[in-house]
């Protein structure tokens, strides 16, 4: 029997009860276990609404969302959250404890981890996210970037099978972004699934092999990042801009560069090849 998809979204329609406009209009896709996928699209395209379906905060108006083949309609948010960790965009929407340490511990307590394990995990998280020196500090006193890391730690700590992050790079400097991308790879290498919603096209280009484009509640593209982010008509429709590397490739295309390059290392390599070929002439 083949392994069930980590996330399977089938013809998902969603509208709030008190409104008659659908925010999601027939969204379908599936994400396999161990995949790392980016969801992109303009503001108001329905990205946040979509990911709130993954742990059952929202239930489909029509259609279905299945997590490891379990219909989200049949489970509570707490049951689903144990497997699907959802990190919200704004960390200020969740901190309430007196210390950073307790903030991480919150979910562990809710999911009934015993005390010794909680201590171990908290220390591990603090170390990994470079928050050790803030252990006893109030979460409210952290800088924007630190808060963001704490928010991720406070979900990652209980080791969910699927990690969903809403705009994780906002307010992060390049060093932290780099660390984030290493972290995401590490999580994936442990057989977990990662879904990221992001506006940061450069981050998406450098770190994701698959991207889903949402526009006005509909999936308008789902495929390899280098195909999707270099497709002008898709980008225009979703009000996105190509990564700057791609713009460079386009500008160099009439002197022989491929048009579907999205990563810095790739374009550098291509330019070197190009220069070598030109060297004799």
């Amino acid at each position: 029997m083949p392994e069930p998809d980590a996330i399977q979204v089938k013809d998902l329609y969603f509208r709030y009860e008190d409104s008659d406009t659908y925010i999601l209009k027939g969204v379908s896709f599936s994400i396999e276990r161990g995949e790392k996928v980016a969801i992109v699209g303009e503001n108001g395209a329905g990205k946040t609404t979509l990911i709130k379906h993954f742990n059952g905060l929202l239930k489909p108006t029509k259609g279905s969302v299945r997590i490891f083949s379990i219909d989200t309609k049949t489970k509570t948010v707490a049951e689903l959250s144990r497997r699907v960790g959802l990190v919200f965009q704004n960390p200020d929407h969740q901190f309430f404890e007196e210390t950073v340490e307790k903030e991480i511990e919150f979910a562990l307590k809710n999911f009934n981890f015993d005390e010794s394990e909680r201590k171990r995990i908290v220390s591990e998280m603090l170390r990994f996210f470079e928050l050790e020196k803030y252990r006893d500090r109030s979460p409210f006193l952290l800088s924007g970037g630190e808060k963001k890391r704490l928010a991720i730690a406070s979900v990652l700590c209980y080791n969910p099978d699927i990690l969903v992050l809403d705009e994780p790079t906002v307010g992060q400097d390049p060093i932290q972004k780099e660390k984030l991308s290493v972290l995401l790879d590490k999580i994936v290498s442990m057989g977990k699934t990662v879904v990221v919603v992001s506006h940061d096209m450069d981050f998406v280009a450098e770190n994701f092999s698959r991207v889903i484009v949402l526009s006005k509640g509909v999936v308008i593209a789902d495929g390899k990042t280098e195909n999707v982010l270099t497709n002008e008509s898709i980008l225009n429709k979703a009000r996105l801009l190509p990564p700057q590397v791609t713009l460079c490739a386009w500008s160099l295309s009439n002197i022989g560069l491929r048009r579907d390059i999205i990563r810095v290392d790739d374009i550098v390599e291509e330019i070197l090849l190009l220069l070598q070929r030109c060297a004799p002439c």
Partner: peptide
Amino acid sequence: IIDAQRSRGLE
């Protein structure tokens, strides 16, 4: 906020 805390297992 309710959504975020429920996502962290608050029932």
